[in-house]
Each structure stands twice: as structure tokens, then as C-alpha cells.
Design a protein around this nucleic acid. Structure first.
Lengths: 238, 238
DNA sequence: CGCAAACTTGATCATCGTCAATGGGGGTGG
DNA sequence: CCACCCCCATTGACGATGATCAAGTTTGCG
């Protein structure tokens, strides 16, 4: 029993290979360009499920609201990415523009799209959701933020560039990672004090030591966690 | 900004309608029957992605192992359900039988299956993953257990029957819900003391007050949480 | 220039994880 | 068939992580 527990194969969060199909879904190109200013609603829960959308610039958050007002952000959508796939005839999420954002509406999701493109999109979403589940289930505060930064870095640019744009608020990040704004802020500050990241401004992060950030993400923090308490005053970077 | 926050539309965890397509995937029927005894590995991370499987009896857990040995159970698979869909040519999960389990192997996932069945399966998995993400991100210990019980109840029988089989261990449940075995156990005990559930044995739960269980799931527990401290001795049910 | 929203930081507290001890059920071997 | 043993579950005590509450600061925008 539990043979697998003794396997040497180990999963590294976020280290899964990109699904085989391009995310850009170029075959789906269709409708006109739409522009949404910051904060504008794209669709709401309960709406009739309309088209898929491809982000051309800006950023989108999709989320749910619980009975008690709590919000969970399920995903951020970056330029090139497609969102809006639903399992029924109704929207199950809210989506709105985080900053001024351009969208291209793709034909009705109903049936007009090539089904293999829809499958590719569904699989991409599924892989992301599974990775995110793992973050939510297993990781502590610092690790979640580290995972988030590495995920965003990986989706924003082809390696080399180490500056990540984070147009969303700290509250958005918190609602994505299942924690509070304050804890997110503290995690950023801690990583900054450790010299792992720089914060030129609140919506931009430079990843200074990518390897250390990966280490934060991968290792559960029991050991070697609060060593930075003693470091204050000489590891300050700003 | 944040218009949606003022919307009256509210999401109830687990209340989303079942995806339009039957989960039973009857069109995929194919290969021979296989039987796995309790604890037997079905496939491992890194394996070449083989067929899809349909559970005929018993129960399966699929999970990942993190670098530090931590485990996350992504899903339990019940009789009638299909699992094993991968985004690449390799398995990204482990799967093994929780109890003696029967599986029917469906043809190679490669391309032999009707693609719309694969899409249906992907969408079902995606919806489950999204619901689970919400549980992990937003809910406290009692709520998670309540969500879990209601999810299992909903998947095991068509309403009316209130007894749920839980062949998995408390540790399995904990690894699914992102908490510890001890906390799961305490949550069960608390719900039992409150008279919401009965525990005829450790692997069987009777849902006595379904409405209260739903309330546990839906409401964030700030208020009315530890009222049962005073109830001990008269609300004991066993 | 001023206001409002967002961010940061600190102090306190609650939930949950960890450690530990005990109890129970099922399976195996004598 | 019984006894032992091991794994699982339960329960308690304690501590740590992160939520909450509360200022105070910065930023962005009108």
C-alpha cells in the first residue's frame, strides 16, 4: 500500500510542461476589437454565456462572489490568452478589466468553434486550475506569493526579462491566493528585505534572485524560515 | 469599479448545475474489466499516458506528491466516473485504488475517443476543480468538511439516501481538503456533537440535518461558531 | 492641491498545525 | 479461535501562522 509514497518522482509546483497546444488559439480569430477601461465589467455571473474573448492588451480577472460577500479570483487573463469558456449556457463567473484592456470577441462559444480548440482551451484551464489547487491546498503565505510571482513571470515574457507587471491590487492578489491583503503585503516586504525581489513601484516587481524565489515556492517552510529576523539591517535592499 | 461587488447575485459553493453532459460517458465504452485490490497503484506520475478509466465499483484517489513529501489529493473518483485525462503524453498524477476497485479501460486517450466526449470530460473536471479551488481558498475547517460531505453525498446517490460511504482514510480527506488529519477528525466530532451528522462507523456518515450542513458550508463561520461548547452533554448524539 | 483609495506596518487574537498519548478495529499468525 | 499488533482515529495541550483591527503613509486622480 502507498507504494507511490516511496517513489523518487516528485512534483515541483509550476514545473509542469506547457500543454502541447499553443494558448494563443490563433484559429479562433473572429470578431471585432473591444476596449474596456479600468474596472469595467465584461460579464457577470448569471449572464447568458456569450463569446470567448482573447485579451489583446491589459489584464482581466475572473472571479466568484460567495454568499457572505467573500470573493475568490479564479484566474487572471494576460494578453494573448483566451477566457470565457463555460460548461453550460450561463456564466458562472464575473469578469472585469483590471486596467484599460483590449479584447477580441471570438464567435459564440455555442458550437461555432472548432471543438479541438475548445478542448485545448479547456485543458489549459484545467492544468492551471490544478496547479492553483495545489498552491491553495499545500503552501504557506510566502510560498503562495512566490508561486504567484513565478507564474506571472512565466506567462508574461519568454525568460530573460525579470520584471513582472502586476496591475492588480494587493487585494486582488489576496483573493487569488486565498489570503488577506495584509499578509500579501507582508510577504512582498519580506521577500524585498531578503533581497529576492525589488519593488520599483507597487505594481511592478523585479525578480532579483529567481533561484531563491523558486526555493521559497518549492520548500515547505518548516526549516530555515525565519532566519531573516536576524538579517534585518544588512540585507535591506530597497 | 467593483460594480459586481454590489450585485445581488451570489454564488453558493457546490450549487452550480451539473454540466449538461452525462458524466457516465457511455459512448466511450471499450476495454476489459480490471480489478485492483485496496491500495494498488493504477498509474504513477511520469508514466506514459495510457487509457482513460471508468470506475465500475470501489473508489480511486488521484494525487500529487510535492518535493517535500507532502501530498495533495486532487480528486476522488466514484463508480460511473471517468478519470485519467492528461494534457500531454505523460501522467501528471498518481492514481490508486482506495478499496477493492473495478475499472474499465477505455481506448487510448491519444485520439481514438470522440473528441466531444473528451471535451465533456475536461469540462466536468474543470468545474470540479474550480469548485474545489473555491473551497480551498475561502473556507475554514468545518466548512471544508461540510462541503466535502455534501459533495460526496451528491455524487453517490440521487437524493433521499442520507448515508455517505467514505472508504478513504481521514488522512486522505485531509490531503484533499488542505488540512491535517487531526483537524478533519475534530470537524467530524464537532458536527456529530451538534447532531448534524452521525458516524455509525468511521467510514460511513449519516447526514442528519442536511440544511444545517449546508449552512455550515455556505456561511463563513465568524458568528455562531462555538455555541456548541455550551451544548455538550445534551446535544450528544452518537 | 486635496481627497480617496491603496499600501504598509504593527499589535493582538483565533484557527489550525504539531506533538503526544490513548483507544479501537481488522488482519495475521500462533 | 484467540491474541497480538499495527494502523487508523480520536482527543488534548501547546505553539505558530495568518486574520483581524488599527494607525499611518503613499499614490493616483480630479
Amino acid at each position: 500500500m502507498f507504494d507511490a509514497m516511496h517513489s523518487t518522482i516528485r512534483y515541483q509546483p509550476g514545473a509542469r510542461p506547457t500543454p502541447p497546444c499553443s494558448e494563443r488559439q490563433d484559429h479562433l480569430v473572429g470578431g471585432p476589437q473591444l476596449t474596456f477601461s479600468a474596472g469595467r465589467t465584461i460579464f457577470s455571473e448569471g449572464d447568458h454565456a456569450g463569446p470567448l474573448y482573447q485579451v489583446t492588451f491589459g489584464m482581466v480577472r475572473s472571479y466568484r462572489i460567495l454568499a457572505d460577500g467573500r470573493r475568490q479570483i479564479c484566474a487572471f487573463h494576460l494578453p494573448g490568452e483566451v477566457f470565457g469558456l463555460e460548461s453550460g449556457s450561463e456564466r458562472h463567473f464575473f469578469a472585469d478589466a483590471i486596467v484599460r484592456t483590449g479584447l477580441r470577441a471570438l464567435r459564440s462559444t455555442a458550437s461555432a468553434e472548432p471543438i479541438d480548440e475548445l478542448l485545448a482551451l479547456a485543458m489549459t484551464s484545467l492544468v492551471r486550475a490544478q496547479d492553483h489547487m495545489l498552491t491553495l491546498a499545500c503552501q504557506g503565505a510566502i510560498e503562495r506569493v512566490a508561486s504567484f510571482l513565478l507564474e506571472m513571470a512565466g506567462r508574461q515574457h519568454a525568460a530573460g526579462d525579470s520584471v513582472v507587471d502586476l496591475p492588480m491590487t494587493r487585494t486582488d492578489i489576496a483573493d487569488y491566493l486565498g489570503m488577506t491583503m495584509e499578509t500579501v503585503s507582508r510577504a512582498f516586504s519580506k521577500l524585498r528585505r531578503q533581497g529576492v525581489i525589488c519593488l520599483p513601484d507597487t505594481h511592478r516587481v523585479e525578480i532579483v534572485r529567481c533561484d531563491e524565489l523558486r526555493a521559497c515556492r518549492d520548500v515547505r517552510s518548516h526549516d530555515a524560515f525565519d532566519q531573516d529576523q536576524g538579517r534585518r539591517g544588512f540585507a535591506e535592499i530597497d
